[in-house]
């Protein structure tokens, strides 16, 4: 279990370092996706399955789409420069393979119950009760923030 946890953490750091040394923004974005998926695997490993699921949906899904769209919406000459991959193609296959290895180890080995005896579904039930109970105002505030953020995307002349 601990090995899987260390593997996912190490892969996340490796992907982050690869993102930093990438010459192209597109390469950095793809490495960031690797980091986000490995962080989701870490969440699953500690027993916070719901957080891992939301991490994949929100970060590795929605935010990554936004980043790729922002890169591709640059003027053609700049977008071409940003998207020309710095990875040699055979080496680029290592990225999805490493992500798959991390996620598979998370799914196969389960949570870190031995190290974290209190991890479990009841914690997530309590969290849901908290969010829809005493913390409802905070949830509403964050929802309002997301709404305002989505309004920021609308152009003035639209």
């Amino acid at each position: 279990m601990l090995t899987a946890f260390a593997l996912c953490g190490g892969l996340a750091v490796l992907f982050a370092a690869a993102a930093l040394i990438q010459k192209t923004l597109y390469g950095s974005a793809m490495c960031l996706m690797g980091v986000l998926l490995e962080v989701a695997a870490l969440f699953v490993l500690v027993g916070a399955d719901l957080m891992g699921f939301i991490q994949v949906l929100v970060y590795a899904g929605a935010v990554m789409v936004l980043i790729v769209i922002a890169i591709l919406s640059a003027p053609p000459n700049i977008a071409q420069r940003w998207t020309a991959s710095a990875f040699p193609k055979p080496a680029a296959w290592l990225v999805p393979l490493a992500v798959f290895a991390g996620l598979a180890s998370a799914g196969r080995m389960g949570g870190l119950e031995a190290a974290l005896p209190q991890a479990g579904a009841h914690l997530q039930r309590e969290m849901a009760g908290l969010l829809f109970g005493p913390w409802a105002l905070a949830v509403e505030a964050v929802g309002l923030l997301v709404l305002i953020a989505s309004l920021a995307v609308v152009r003035e002349d639209a």
Binding site: A70, L131, V146
Partner: peptide, 30 residues
């Protein structure tokens, strides 16, 4: 949060995740 069996920590992480997503949207809009 999981180690201390503290649901408040998980709730904070979830709200932080949503706030960070909103921050990314505003950043890219700018």
């Amino acid at each position: 949060a999981v180690r201390r069996a503290d649901p408040q920590g998980l709730a904070v992480a979830l709200l932080a995740l949503a706030a960070a997503a909103a921050e990314v949207v505003v950043g890219f809009a700018l």
